[in-house]
Simulated scan of single mutants.
Amino acid sequence: MTELVSVDIQRILEMIPHRYPFLLIDKVVDIAIGESAVGIKNVTMNEPQFTGHFPGQPIMPGVLIIESMAQTAAILVVQTLGEDAEGKLVYFMSIDNARFRKPVVPGDVMHIHVKKKQRRGPVWKFESEVRVNDQVVAEATIAAMIRGS
């Protein structure tokens, strides 16, 4: 049986270099080392993107939803590789089959599910989906490379 691990915001700040306003996950739960993880993002009205996207009808930009997938995947990668990977940059290589099924709005809690599809050296590929209230709101296949591993 796989042991599940959780990472809080303080640990996230040690593991990846992202900071406000571009840190888009609040915690990561149910980490199965080398396999999968679930990121949690509490979407709040006081986030800077909502002043312009869109005034009077705030909607989480799709690119930021994709970025939350990447940050969740980065935590899985660092947790899998260990301390030597902490703080290293992870570069997007591809985003495939991205679909946005329902708008994400302030008050929603995004559950960002990432599952490793394959790994070849420093390149990792993930199947990702975001759920709000157990409903899939976005999905994509993403690939990224961790620098210096």
Rank of each mutant, 00 (worst) to 15 (best):
Leu89His: 01
Leu64Glu: 05
Pro122Asn: 13
Ile40Ser: 02
Pro61His: 02
Asp84Leu: 06
Arg99Ala: 09
Lys116Trp: 00
Lys117Thr: 10
Ile65Leu: 11
Asn42Tyr: 13
Val7Cys: 02
Gln79Asn: 12
Gly107Thr: 11
Val90Lys: 14
Thr51Cys: 04
Pro55Val: 05
Met110Lys: 12
Glu14Met: 12
Lys117Asp: 13
Val90Arg: 12
Gly39Ser: 06
Leu89Ser: 06
Glu47Gln: 13
Arg19Cys: 05
Ile65Phe: 00
Asp30Leu: 05
Lys102Cys: 00
Glu67Gln: 13
Lys41Phe: 07
Gln57Ser: 08
Gly34Ile: 05
Leu81Thr: 07
Ile33Asp: 01
Asp8Tyr: 10
Gly34Leu: 06
His111Gln: 14
Pro103Tyr: 07
Ala70Lys: 06
Leu64Gln: 04
Met15Trp: 01
Asn46Val: 00
Arg101Ser: 12
Tyr20Gly: 09
Ser6Ala: 12
Ile75Leu: 09
Pro61Ile: 01
Val114Met: 02
Tyr91His: 14
Ile31Gln: 03
Ile95Val: 15
Leu89Tyr: 02
Ser36Gly: 04
Pro21Trp: 09
Met45Arg: 10
Ile112Pro: 01
Asp30Thr: 02
Ser94Met: 14
Phe22Gly: 03
Glu67Asp: 12
Gln79Leu: 03
Gly52Trp: 00
Arg120Asn: 12
Gly52Tyr: 00
Arg19Lys: 11
Met15Thr: 06
Ile112Glu: 04
Ala70Ile: 08
Trp124Leu: 13
Gly39Lys: 00
Met69Cys: 05
Pro103Val: 09
Glu47Arg: 10
Leu23Thr: 04
Ser94Arg: 15
Gly62Gln: 08
Ile66Cys: 12
Gly34Arg: 00
Gly56Asp: 09
Gln57Glu: 04
Leu81Glu: 15
Arg119Ile: 13
Gly56Trp: 10
Ser36Pro: 09
Tyr20Thr: 11
Ala85Met: 10
Leu24Phe: 14
Gly39His: 02
Ile12Lys: 00
Gly87Asp: 08
Asp96Arg: 13
Val104Thr: 14
Ile12Met: 03
Leu64Tyr: 02
Ala70Val: 10
Arg119Pro: 01
Asn97Leu: 05
Ile9Gly: 03
Ile25Thr: 09
Ala85Trp: 08
Gln49Ile: 07
Thr51Leu: 10
Ile112Ser: 11
Gly34Cys: 04
Ile75Arg: 07
Lys115Ile: 14
Pro48Lys: 02
Gly56Met: 08
Tyr91Ser: 10
Glu47Ala: 09
Gly62Tyr: 06
Ile12Gln: 02
His18Val: 08
Phe50Thr: 11
Ile9Asp: 13
Thr51Glu: 14
Gly82Pro: 03
Ala98Met: 12
Thr72Ala: 08
Leu89Trp: 01
Ile66Met: 14
Glu35Met: 05
Lys27Trp: 03
Pro17Gly: 07
Phe50Lys: 06
Ile40Gln: 01
Leu76Val: 08
Arg19Asp: 04
Glu14Gly: 11
Val114Ile: 07
Ile65Met: 14
Val29Asp: 10
Pro122Tyr: 02
Met45Thr: 06
